[in-house]
Design a protein around this nucleic acid. Structure first.
Length: 398
DNA sequence: TCTGGGGTCCTAGGACCC
DNA sequence: TCTGGGGTCCTAGGACCC
């Protein structure tokens, strides 16, 4: 029988993901504290976490807390591969899978009872299969809403399974510290603590208007809803990313403009290459800068038409960089990043022709579309740039 | 305690249009 | 000549997440 509001949402979250992949691939690391990333901790194994090592912590501090830790450099391609394998298990468990990041996903298993068993059984099997097929530990939270499922997996970590039955939601939720609420970070936690609010239950006792006053409209309403266990968001399949970016820390030493430009060129190249592979075009170029004093700024410019064209993005980024020149000279540049946002404002502009199909009919169809939308001069530009890039039909502004 | 790289969403102000 | 309200888009910044 279908029960409205049954606990059918799973939040599957791989434990200490990067570090677990390292321990899987190198038996000598098993059972030992492992830190991935030297400058900054990208991931820490649970053995390292026991010493207080946390993600995003500086490498020096981490080594001081845990001198016995093995520090390994990240192997991003291995993590991407492991992620794909885990998502294959997710996809085998339910048709409704929403990826959240490289190591976590929501699954809606409603209606699968006859085929696959209860949500709890599905969750247990998913954990077993990730262990067997991917070789990694994973925690699953099961609840009626996405938010509660995520809280549940957070509480059950590591290597756990926690089901929150619908009739025990508030008794589970209200004693938890506010930091467990999704969307409460350091800034929000501080504002709440200043008002002597430390548990979810205490948040729930406040009127919504008070929370809105403290935190702003969206955050206040969001928190109010979560504290009252209201989260109507469905599991969404096939969510598309809205920006693609890349950044590079430069270190503390002063960089020449030529050196900065070289970094910018490589960043833009990386970003536009990824865009073309993903078949995406975007309109807004965002330049991200960080200075010697760790302050940050962004500069952005929106183009009249979306593109994935390297030269267009590069010229825009260089121009944005030149606008920030006085700041850079005054404060010293320590990080530069480039992102293209506003992806696929108009999906019909997404005319991507991989090189191996870049002939005959496919090209003709694409160019007809360009002509219909932008006129024949646009076709000339598209052909020239298409040949040059070998990839897309970039739609350049004049 | 000095800090990586990849993202998401929200807000506020200004320009511009009707 | 001065003035309204509503809407969209762009830019910059902030908070948060993994």
């Amino acid at each position: 029988m279908f029960v409205f509001g049954a606990a059918t949402i799973l939040h599957a979250d791989l434990d200490a993901f990067y570090a677990s992949v390292e321990q899987r691939d190198d038996p000598r690391l098993r059972g030992r504290p492992v830190i991935v990333g030297a400058g900054v901790v990208l991931a820490a194994s649970y053995e390292a976490k026991a010493f207080g090592v946390r993600t995003a912590m500086g490498g020096r501090q981490a080594r001081r807390l845990c001198p016995g830790a093995v520090v390994v450099p990240p192997r991003m391609s291995a993590y991407a591969e492991a992620s794909k394998a885990a998502f294959r298990v997710f996809d085998d468990s339910s048709p409704l899978v929403e990826g959240l990041s490289i190591d976590e996903a929501f699954l809606d298993v409603r209606g699968l009872e006859r085929i696959s068993g209860t949500p709890t059984e599905i969750a247990a099997r998913l954990r077993r299969e990730v262990r067997e097929r991917v070789g990694l530990p994973i925690t699953v939270g099961v609840a009626r809403t996405k938010f509660l499922a995520k809280v549940a997996s957070g509480v059950a970590k590591p290597d756990g399974l926690l089901v929150v039955p619908p009739d025990r939601e508030l008794s589970f939720l209200h004693p938890l510290p506010v930091e467990h609420l999704w969307g409460v970070g350091p800034a929000t936690a501080r504002k709440l603590h200043e008002r002597r609010i430390s548990t979810v239950g205490e948040v729930a006792r406040l009127p919504e208007t008070v929370l809105v006053t403290i935190l702003g409209r969206a955050a206040g309403r969001h928190l109010y809803a979560l504290a009252h266990n209201r989260d109507p968001r469905p599991v969404v399949v096939g969510r598309r990313r809205r920006s693609i970016g890349s950044q590079c820390a430069l270190g503390r030493s002063r960089k020449t403009p030529e050196a900065v430009d070289a970094v910018l060129v490589s960043l833009v190249d990386r970003v536009t290459r990824r865009m073309r592979i993903a078949g995406r075009v975007g309109r807004t170029v965002v330049l991200r800068l960080r200075f010697g004093d760790f302050s940050r700024v962004t500069r952005s410019h929106t183009l009249p038409l979306p593109t994935a064209h390297t030269q267009t993005v590069l010229l825009t980024a260089q121009w944005l960089l030149s606008c920030a020149k006085p700041e850079i000279e005054r404060r010293g540049l320590t990080l530069v990043g480039v992102a293209v946002a506003n992806l696929d404002d108009d999906s019909s502009l997404q005319l991507v022709l991989p090189l191996d199909r870049f002939s005959g009919t496919a090209l003709d169809v694409a160019l007809d579309e360009v002509r219909r939308r932008f006129g024949s001069t646009a076709v000339t530009r598209a052909v020239l740039l298409g040949r040059e890039q070998g990839f897309t039909v970039p739609l350049l502004p004049d």
